[in-house]
């Protein structure tokens, strides 16, 4: 991508190291964009820094996606950030164990995360600490399970109507 030339993820990582020290990890990718791994309990502080630092100014969260990694028994969240003023992009990743899937919410930093986080909770069961209204968004209230998990089993009936053929 063109915007990478302005500031590569590696440079941003070096820049962030000064403030966050050991917390972050840089993962180079062979295909697609390289990313930075953030621990779930410091996501909000990192997000705030990324948005407000004059050298970074990541003012939009393009996309926030939940992922289930069944081999590692983990859930993950991927953040795609973009800065309209500096024209660079960045990918952040958070990994949490499936037994205790808690990530700090970034709803207060980027408003768009509100619905994205609700969707990740609905479809994958990731809990976002600090989200003001973490309810199901696509499936109805009272739906069983989180459909996008790889081991999801469809419930047989909903309100007395069969979900199968």
């Amino acid at each position: 991508m063109k915007s990478d030339a302005l500031k590569s993820p590696e440079e941003i990582y070096e820049y962030l190291k000064a403030s966050f020290d050991e917390l972050l990890e840089y993962v180079p990718a062979e295909l697609g964009q390289s990313w930075i791994t953030v621990p779930p309990f410091s996501m909000k502080a990192v997000a705030k820094f990324l948005r407000d630092d004059p050298a970074l100014r990541f003012n939009t969260l393009m996309c926030q996606s939940g992922v289930h990694y069944p081999d590692e028994d983990e859930l993950g969240v991927t953040y795609h950030l973009h800065s309209t003023s500096h024209k660079h992009t960045l990918v952040l990743k958070v990994r949490v164990p499936i037994a205790d899937p808690r990530v700090q919410s970034v709803e207060a930093i980027w408003k768009t995360a509100d619905w994205h986080e609700r969707e990740a909770w609905d479809l994958l069961g990731i809990v976002f600490d600090g989200h003001p209204n973490l309810k199901r968004i696509l499936c109805p209230e009272g739906w069983e399970g989180h459909p996008l998990r790889k081991d999801y089993r469809q419930q047989e009936t909903y309100l007395g109507v069969t979900t199968g053929a």
Partner: peptide, 18 residues
């Protein structure tokens, strides 16, 4: 093995495929 995020401009705005 790998991942991409590609965004394009649809009539309604930015469509991203991750």
């Amino acid at each position: 093995e790998g991942e991409v995020y590609v965004r394009t401009e649809t009539p309604r705005g930015e469509l991203g495929y991750y």
